[in-house]
């Protein structure tokens, strides 16, 4: 982590303080309140960590995270994170492009999508054991192959120059900055290359509210929250930091991935 290349791009917006990034987030495995992930994740053991690479690849197998990181150049990327709940942050991640990892395992021509799975550890993740949960654990997410191979798509192992804290998806997570935060799946134990579009967890729970793509899009409202604006944290009480939400969260370079697609239908 210390050897990570520093961020090269100019920073246009204020970075959200470390304390807020690590004390306010959704990680439903640890509880449904925003402060639960920090409060309930101290029992979680992120090391040692194994990741299974499976499906349509030439070299499937179980790999130690250390081995996956070998030969990868860690770099700092400062990304905007937009939650579907209409709040947002700016976070300095440490990681490497997912494309570098996938290439190493040689996806076959039948690999059309990437399916990610979060670890299942009810003893260390209290909400996975809850009788009141609407989520069918483990948490699953997916990307189309070209989205996964896009240079912006990051596998993160750190933030703010440190290892990922447990509540932020330690030790190994996805960051897709042009999609709503729930796409950026945490604590990944399985990466599977598949032919069919995977059914991601939130789409399974409420298909009218959450789609597969989940691209940040101010023109497509969520039934519960307006997506035209967002509150960028930190946000004051009497002068909330309300800013207009940008298409693809401001990452216009991904627009070509969705040429010709109806983004109202494919939300």
């Amino acid at each position: 982590i210390n050897a990570a290349l520093p961020n090269q791009e100019p920073i246009h917006s204020d970075i959200t303080p470390y304390k807020i990034v690590t004390s306010y987030n959704n990680f439903y495995e640890f509880g449904y309140n925003k402060d639960d992930p920090q409060a309930n994740s101290s029992q979680f053991m992120p090391f040692p960590w194994q990741v299974e690479i499976a499906g349509e690849v030439a070299k499937p197998g179980h790999y130690h995270l250390d081995d996956l990181l070998k030969g990868m150049t860690l770099q700092e990327r400062i990304y905007r994170l937009r939650c579907v709940e209409a709040w947002s942050m700016v976070i300095p991640w440490i990681g490497f492009p997912l494309s570098a990892l996938l290439k190493r395992f040689e996806p076959t021509s039948r690999a059309k999508y990437v399916k990610f799975t979060t670890v299942l550890r009810p003893k260390q993740m209290p909400a996975q054991d809850s009788a009141f949960s609407s989520i069918d654990w483990p948490y699953v997410e997916g990307l189309r192959m070209d989205e996964a191979m896009h240079p912006l798509t990051l596998m993160a192992v750190g933030l703010y120059g440190k290892d990922l804290p447990n509540q932020s998806g330690a030790p190994f997570r996805l960051v897709v900055p042009w999609k709503y935060g729930f796409k950026s799946i945490k604590s990944i134990v399985k990466i599977e290359l598949v032919e069919q579009q995977p059914l991601n967890t939130w789409q399974k729970i409420a298909p009218n509210e959450y789609g597969f793509y989940a691209n940040v899009n101010p023109q497509v409202d969520h039934p519960r929250w307006s997506q035209k604006e967002e509150r960028r944290l930190p946000s004051g009480l009497f002068h909330p930091n309300i800013i207009p939400t940008q298409m693809f969260n401001g990452y216009a370079e991904v627009a070509s991935l969705y040429k010709g697609m109806d983004l109202h239908k494919n939300f």
């Binding site: 807020i20 306010y24 925003k34 509150r231 930190p234 946000s235």
Partner: peptide, 8 residues
């Protein structure tokens, strides 16, 4: 917490 508005 990180988002006092939401908390209140």
């Amino acid at each position: 917490g990180g988002d006092p508005a939401q908390y209140i």
